[in-house]
Design a protein around this nucleic acid. Structure first.
Lengths: 342, 342
DNA sequence: TTGTAGGCGTTATCAG
DNA sequence: CTGATAACGCCTACAA
């Protein structure tokens, strides 16, 4: 752990100037003899370039940050799994932030962009405040937002279409004959919470079902909250026959509660989740879920960012990923597993 | 995205020297009037410290790297979930690497430590080669290894005890009356593969069962490989009555195949996984699994590293995390879920 | 082809 | 208390 050699050390050892060392190290035209001497010295000393000094000079860190709302949510991990290799292939390191959906932490990340320790940022905020927008407008490095931002915000944006997603789920449940379809949502002041709540209402209308407040319960996007919410809902509407859950974690909480209450899934109550995470396929019974394309969104975000890092300014771009209903046992019964329809 | 202000910009604006600006920004004793002027200028300009320049000078980046073998394996994600908050709380950023268990990539990470873009490294190698050891011995920043390294390697080390873990599982299966207990392992040239293979043999001996080669199948630590291996095993030994799988992904693959083959779990074949990932609790049937304490190991690793970053040199330390058998439906039958015993 | 020197943005030393 | 000034390690004109 001794202090490492620098180009100065090498220069002395090889009996040349630091400029020559730098040239050799960067493959610039140099006399063979000099190249040899420098390489030899570098090898013997076990020289490794100092990335920090290099960044200071070049104004590029070859690092990109990914700020996710909740590192414990497999939907974000699915994004991470796609983002990482794309960046790695392009020679970028990935710096991770978990903001726990705390707006202040997100602002913090945005702020720290100014510190220039990364060349760009991919961010997935749950709430988008005025402050977010102001900071995005003045960010000192390219930002890609996974989630929705108002039109005109000068950043690249990758969106899910949870509205259509909810619609697919409700149609499915309706076709299965369900008529008392409840919704377990996350906070309404979050972007996804608001979108999914509105979509639920719309989708019910589309199939001719009335919207009833008693069928809706708001919690948070975690499994424990899902349990709590479904307990409440079940007490209020004992004969509820379907549950549209705003994400898979909530849906798993629902399965827990239903099992404990002796309700059969899907015979008594059908359950649909959202995000189609690994957990959906592995749960018991396996969970019908609306895929919002977490993986695709992650990949698209990484590619948008890379493109901007490489080709600089251009119009902000918007990518929308289409949802897909993945039908499994929690709505389709024992027999049919893994069927897919769009 | 214009070029940001530097302390020089501020100095000009405030009519003081850059030295004074630096002092104010770092809270060193300064005249009130100067403080005011500098802060005002900094605010107006929206100044943010340049982390790169700061690192060059201070020789600290406040970044730590985590190199995991497979970002798609929930066991590593469980570690990540613990590591991240610990580092964050201490003011460190986390840089992520996924090496996909390719030794060359791991060497690469170790090598890039010399670039000094991080202050330390947590690494979880599947294979430990001579080169690994040589590089660990000369690493230019503190390294914590999650996994086993030979005694005497000058790094902090957090270990699981998969030997005892396998033993717990085999005892459990034996007590349930299983006598043809197969093993689906990962590559034997990996540290965990070797350990678990040997442990299986030992554990069988301990309960008085013979070791039979036909009961063992080697694949890789992925679900698809688990499927393949179990298909082979099932063809070779149709009346096998239990499967010890080297991790949860393999075990899920086993469940897939058994279901397709019309075998009931656990009545016909009992299945045990390892790592006790989220997937184990959520699978169908839920999976009995040996917890090797992924979360605890991650946390311990982060704490060891922080401690070393803060208190410098000391003897390398070894932390061993104890395994725990988590019994679920895949061995205990429909009725009993989530029981725990050590 | 090579070396000298300046600068990237900070921090820290040392006179004033 | 403040202002020059010299590092930190590297890259790159520019001059030799």
């Amino acid at each position: 752990m001794a202090d490492g050699p620098t180009i100065t050390t090498i220069a002395e050892r090889a009996g040349v100037s630091i400029a020559s060392v730098s040239r050799v190290l960067n493959g610039l035209p140099t006399r063979q003899e000099t190249v040899r001497k420098v390489m030899a010295a570098a090898d013997e000393l076990g020289y490794v370039r100092n990335a920090v000094a290099r960044s200071l000079k070049s104004r590029r860190t070859h690092q990109v940050a990914f700020a996710m709302a909740d590192i414990g949510n497999p939907a974000y991990l699915a994004m991470l799994r796609e983002i990482q290799p794309v960046l790695k292939a392009a020679g970028y390191r990935l710096v991770l932030h978990s903001t726990d959906a705390v707006a202040a932490d997100e602002i913090d990340v945005l702020h720290s962009l100014g510190e220039r320790y990364v060349d760009g940022l991919i961010m997935s905020p749950l709430r988008v405040t005025e402050t977010h927008l102001r900071m995005l407008a003045t960010a000192r490095a390219p930002v890609v937002i996974i989630g929705s931002v108002p039109d005109g915000t000068p950043v690249d944006n990758v969106r899910a279409d949870s509205r259509t997603g909810v619609r697919l789920a409700i149609d499915h449940l309706h076709m299965l004959g369900r008529r008392r379809i409840g919704m377990v949502n996350g906070p309404l002041d979050t972007v996804p919470g608001a979108a999914r709540g509105a979509a639920y209402r719309e989708a019910l209308a589309a199939v001719g079902l009335p919207y009833e407040e008693k069928l809706v319960e708001i919690g948070d996007f975690y499994r424990a909250e899902g349990r709590r919410a479904v307990e409440t809902l079940l007490r209020r509407v004992p004969d509820i026959d379907a549950l549209m859950c705003a994400n898979d974690l909530i849906a798993l909480g629902a399965l827990d509660v239903l099992r404990a209450a002796g309700k059969r899934v899907p015979q008594d109550v059908a359950v649909v989740g959202m995000d189609d995470t690994d957990l959906a396929a592995a749960s018991w019974p396996s969970l019908t879920s609306v895929s919002l394309g977490s993986a695709e969104r992650g990949k698209a975000a990484a590619e948008l960012l890379l493109d901007r890092l490489q080709h600089g300014d251009r119009e902000p771009r918007l990518v929308t990923v289409l949802p897909r209903l993945v039908v499994r046992a929690s709505t389709a019964g024992e027999g049919s597993e893994g069927g897919r329809s769009s």
